[in-house]
Design a protein around this nucleic acid. Structure first.
Ligand SMILES: [Mn+2]
Ligand SMILES: [Mn+2]
Ligand SMILES: [Mn+2]
Ligand SMILES: [Mn+2]
Lengths: 217, 217
DNA sequence: ATTTATTTTTAGACAAAACTAAAAATTTGT
DNA sequence: ACAAATTTTTAGTTTTGTCTAAAAATAAAT
């Protein structure tokens, strides 16, 4: 499987909400920052290799083989991100692009040794679960800050958007994984949320609240 | 620079003995396991990018820019090899192929942080020097076991052939970097060498002796 | 000094992964 | 239900890196 094919598989995996409906050509094109026509070509190739099901105009659906493959790439991506942050002292907003390259290094043994070296981490620096050796992903129960209710108390356990810009903004707000948050109020006018964090009250915009995951405690 | 271009630059670097004469098209083809015609195409492209000097039928010579670039790739290759052996507990015969991929990961910051994490190692698991940040390589004075004289005492400091097969053979002989060796005798008939290693006498074939570097003490 | 052998380059083709432009199918709006 | 808008596919190019076959240049041998 080539680097490009692997990135497509991962993209389709991440875009697969429903297991029934295929992921649309346009959605994949958007995610991959390419043109729909290129996506069609690639989907056909992936169908040829039995990693996706494809019927014209019906979008792409990963096969079991495809899902397993996706999990393996994601496992590598997140293990490398963990390595970069925990061992090389990168910050969480710098690691995605590098992991985007490292995830394609082809060596089963490398992944397993890296996993052992890192002491079998189960979540990456953005709170996302790291698939195990066999591709199993333990789903973490989490809820968007935007959908938490007034009075709820929770811990920041993840982010939906993991772009550098957003992560650096969270740094500025002193919001990091593990921080305790209390929802003091929700403003119906603009859907902003007033929270308490480290004994300070801060106002979080709807857009920001929509990208922070909490575990309600 | 693409992955393929980088591998060519490295190949030309390693094949450059004389600084005057260009490296022949055929030699590069051999090293890269490809055809001479492909090499000619690539040399032209590299000349276009000013990393090699190229005149028809004269072979390829790296420019200063090319040499600096080569040193950077080799730096990454050897740092990753060191990481794999020292941190992930790979053996020295397993790391070359993986480093062959890792050396192409594009992030200056990653290299510098990796270097720091490894505590600035200066030689890789095969005894080869790791170029510094600026591409400077400190030459290690070393001599082939095959050219050492009877009575010489030395320490194994490197290997010329770093193929898995050779390295595993050395493991079997208990020859590793740092081992002390005494040259007891040289057999003129087949150029084999009788050495003392760990209080045992072993006979080393000419071919093997030709691939072990010593520092005479 | 020619002829012969080897090396290197050119010419033409191919597969991968992208693109643009245009056609076909599907979805949406009235 | 039909026209309009959108999505998806096809057709035809392009670029990168490879290949084979043949031509040209260089090196070796008689
Ligand atoms: Mn990637
Ligand atoms: Mn992540
Ligand atoms: Mn390489
Ligand atoms: Mn090495």
């Amino acid at each position: 499987m080539t680097l490009s094919e692997e990135d497509y598989i991962k993209a389709i995996y991440h875009l697969s909400k429903d297991d029934q409906k295929g992921v649309s050509t346009n959605a994949i094109a958007m995610q991959m920052d390419t043109k729909a026509s290129s996506v069609t070509d690639m989907i056909k190739k992936l169908a040829e290799k039995d990693v996706v099901h494809y019927k014209k105009y019906q979008g792409a659906r990963l096969t079991d083989k495809g899902k397993t493959y996706a999990a393996k790439i994601i496992r590598k991506h997140r293990l490398w991100e963990f390595f970069l942050v925990e061992k090389l002292n990168f910050s969480w907003d710098e690691v995605h692009d590098i992991a985007e390259e490292l995830e394609h290094i082809k060596s089963e043994k490398l992944v397993e040794k890296l996993d052992a070296f890192l002491d079998y981490p189960r979540i990456d620096p953005h709170g996302d679960p790291i698939p195990d050796k066999d591709g199993n992903i333990t789903k973490v129960e989490k809820v968007l800050l935007s959908s938490a209710k007034k009075g709820d108390k929770g811990i920041v356990v993840g982010v939906k958007d993991s772009s550098s810009d957003f992560l650096r903004y969270l740094d500025k707000l002193n919001i990091a994984l593990g921080e305790k948050i209390i929802i003091l109020n929700k403003e119906p006018f603009d859907n902003s949320v007033l929270i308490q964090l480290n004994h300070k009250e801060i106002n979080i915009s709807s857009m920001t609240a929509n990208n922070i995951f909490l575990k309600i405690s």
